[in-house]
Structures are given as C-alpha cells and as structure tokens.
Simulated scan of single mutants.
Amino acid sequence: MSEQPKKPLPFVANFAAGAIAGVSEILTFYPLDVVKTRMQLSTQKSQGLVGSFKSIVREEGVGRLYRGLVPPLLLEAPKRAVKFAANDFWGKTYLDLFGEKKMNQQLSILTGCSAGATESFVVVPFELVKIRLQDKASASLYSGPMDVVRQIIKKEGLLGMYNGMESTFWRHLWWNGGYFGCIFQVRSMLPEPKNPQQTLLNNFISGCVGGFVGTALNTPFDMVKSRIQSAPRIAGVPPKYNWTYPSLVLIAREEGLPALYKGFVPKVLRLAPGGGVLLLVVEFTLGVFRQALGPPYI
C-alpha cells in the first residue's frame, strides 16, 4: 500500500512558525545589524567589524548596540511570518500553475523571489524607523520609535513612511530568491536524514548556505536602502539617493565598487547563521504543529 502524502499545514501554522523563528533570530543577532547599518551609512573608509563595534561601545555605550530594537522586534513576527507563509502560498500557486507535482530549482527561486516581493510591502515603515534610530547622525533627534513615526508623518506626510519602498522591494526579492533557491539545492545534495536530529542539522546547514548566498546577492541593495531611508525628504530638494540602480552606480563612482559591500561582514555573520536558525526554528515549530494536529498532517 502506497504511503499517503502529508496534508499541507494550514496558513496559520506557517504564519506562527515564521513569527516564532523571526523573534528568535532578531534577539540573537541584533547588535550585528546596528554595526552593519553604521558601516553602510558611513562615506569614510570602513573601520571594519571590530573597529565599528569598539567605536560604538566607546563613544555611545553598550546600550547603543540595541538602539532601535523595538521596531524590528515588532516587525520580526509579521515579517518572518509573511516570508514563510508567502513562500508556502507562492510555492503551491506555481506548482498548480505549471502543472508540477514536486518543487524544482527554478520554481524554488521564483517562489522565493515572489515571497520576498510580498514581504517588502510589510517591512518598509518598520525598516525606516529602525534606520533613523540606528543612524548616529539622526538618532538624537528622536526620543523613540513613535517619535520617529510622528516626525516623519508631520514633515514628510503619510507616504513618507514608505520612503525606500523600491529599494526594499529589490533587497527582499534578491535575498529570498537566493535563500529559498539555495535551501532546495543544498537539501538535495545532503545525505538523506535517518533521524530527527539529522533532519534538524540538514535544515541548519541549508539555511546557513541560503543565508550566505542571499546576503551576497542583496547587500548592495541593502546598502542603497539604508542611504535612502536615512535622509529625510525635504520639499523642493531632490535627494542624493533615490532610485535603486542609479544610486548603485553613483555610490560605485564616488566611493568605488567595494563600497557597495559595506557592512557585508556583520550582515553575513548575522544572516548566514541567522538563516540557519530561521529554518531550524520554522521546521521544528511546524513539526510540533503536525504532531499536535495528528493525521493526516504527520
């Protein structure tokens, strides 16, 4: 008798698993995100990861490494939940659309890119608040996250909360395409797991590789997004950084091609193992849901 395929878990299960994974990841790796943003916003020669850490702690105190934590912490649950739920939704949609029964490499990349594009619409206001609080030049202008929101809306209007939307779209499209595409490929190359521990290890390894590749692809777009979102819009004054691809060319011309990868080291140190943690927690949580719901989900 052939084995019946597992029934797909409901949307709420994928949403909850993504939310739990996102919060776990941000609490573990947030200081690296602060250092990454500072390195990206600086137009001077980089101090490097260790030098930037020391500079922040020496000049502003250890607490500055957690400055702006509230917006991403509030964001991580819906952001990661949307990421994995959207990936699940688009995966099923493309399988039906192309008449495939199993996911392949091309569909996994297309699915990841679509999930990233979907996710980008959720994250922009939270990312904007986080960048303004992390930026040394503007952090003292705000008393906290809600003050950032109030000042942006007052000075730039409601649409000001979506400053950097286009660059955020490209950042998430490229990261998710690389992340989910690599997860599929690496899983297929790893030995078939014989027990739950090996399954968790395979998930961690594939998530780490996916996180590294996604970071390598999207760092220039993340750099541009940080530059765009750090500068308040002033009526009648064209911003130096506006659209993504022209800004990439401008930064490369003024600061050199390596400048497009400012902040890469702390970013990859966060998102490579962070990608592994994300996938590990998601798969573990989904396993708990399957056990709780019982057949036919197991």
Rank of each mutant, 00 (worst) to 15 (best):
C182P: 07
M146V: 04
V70M: 10
P71R: 04
S46V: 02
G18I: 09
G276W: 12
Y142G: 08
G263C: 07
K6N: 13
V224F: 00
G181V: 09
V282P: 09
R67V: 05
M1A: 14
P71N: 03
F212D: 05
S226Q: 14
L128Y: 13
L49T: 03
K83Q: 15
P273N: 14
P31G: 06
G91K: 10
E166P: 01
V249L: 12
Y162Q: 07
R150D: 11
L110V: 09
A272F: 13
K92P: 06
E254T: 04
P232Q: 07
G178A: 04
Y30W: 12
L293W: 08
T118L: 01
F204S: 02
F98T: 14
G274Q: 12
P266Y: 09
G61Y: 03
F11W: 15
E76C: 11
G68M: 03
L173T: 14
L69S: 02
E3I: 12
N203M: 06
P8M: 10
L73W: 07
G22A: 13
F169D: 05
L293F: 13
C208D: 01
E59V: 00
S2H: 11
Y241L: 03
P258S: 13
P71C: 09
Y261K: 09
E59A: 11
A137G: 08
G263S: 05
F98M: 12
W174G: 03
R64N: 08
E255A: 13
V70N: 01
E119W: 06
K45A: 13
L73S: 03
V123N: 11
P191F: 06
Q40R: 03
E76G: 02
P10W: 12
Q40D: 00
P191H: 00
T28Q: 07
